[in-house]
Amino acid sequence: MRIVVGAFPDETAMQAALGRLREAGFNAIETYGPKPAGEGHSPLPLVILAGGLFGAALGFWWQTHETVQAYPLDIGGRPLFSWPAYVPIALEIGILLAIASGVFGFFVVNRMPRLWEPVDDAPAMRRATSDRWCIAITTETPEQARHALWRFAALEVDEVAA
């Protein structure tokens, strides 16, 4: 397997090329660009919600458990189960876990950290984080892919081992 990478000057050019490549039957395609592109489905909001709810519930349960069961103390004549006072900490723990699960969930979903991938060997990729948009085609027939990319106005085409 080989990876063929073609670089485009802007997103429009890349999108145009991408559509035509798909039509041409290339399926294992990944694109790279220097700015967020494309809306789409992601499981992460749900992960974050779950993390937050779990954190808040855990925080509340834990405070209740310590004050009511594990070590009940008379503090200022307040009821042992002073639930309003437990809300701030439950909220904060919830937020902490939500944000942590968002960030770490992102890493898990994207299988990060992965410091090196075969596609990185393509010199064109060096500018994919600045001002170039790249299309990487993983294929058994690199010649066809190179040809197609050149045809769809890639500025530069590289081929690396997958």
């Binding site: 103390l73 008379d74 503090i75 200022g76 004549g77 307040r78």
Partner: peptide, 20 residues
């Protein structure tokens, strides 16, 4: 020696509390 002591509820480490 307040039964509902304001000092106790603000101590974060239970250094001041009420006995029975």
């Amino acid at each position: 020696h307040c039964e509902q002591a304001p000092c106790e509820i603000v101590c974060p480490v239970e250094a001041t509390m009420h006995d029975s």
